[in-house]
């Protein structure tokens, strides 16, 4: 695991994407929770990540009985939520950067 500078927002977002692409959902959500705690000013973001934990748990249970094709729409929605949270936070910092 490469050393990351905690203040490097984009590198930390990339770290989360890397865990996601490696199908390491547990580590993706852990680091997303850290990302939210460090960079988000909205209380709702932590709750959104916690909801994702629960949703991915259900998804993993479904994956044992169903093929990927059958539950892909649900999985894609969860992954999009990961992207959305990160992008919302990135954009809020970009806004501060401009002001």
């Amino acid at each position: 695991m490469p050393d990351l500078q905690p203040t490097d927002l984009i590198a930390r977002a990339e770290e989360i994407y890397d865990y996601l692409a490696s199908n390491d959902i547990s580590q993706t959500l852990k680091r997303l929770l850290d990302f939210v705690q460090d960079f988000s000013t909205q209380d709702t973001h932590q709750q959104q990540v916690i909801t994702l934990y629960q949703s991915f748990r259900v998804y993993n249970q479904q994956l044992q009985d169903k093929s990927l094709a059958e539950i892909k729409p649900q999985r894609d929605a969860l992954v999009q939520e990961v992207f959305n949270i990160i992008e919302q936070i990135e954009q809020s910092w970009e806004g501060q950067n401009k002001s």
Partner: peptide, 18 residues
């Protein structure tokens, strides 16, 4: 440039205790 600028902004807003 975007990455460096964001890093600087974060450092200014959340001073590192590390």
């Amino acid at each position: 440039r975007k990455q460096a600028a964001l890093k600087t902004t974060v450092q200014q807003k959340i001073p590192s205790k590390t």
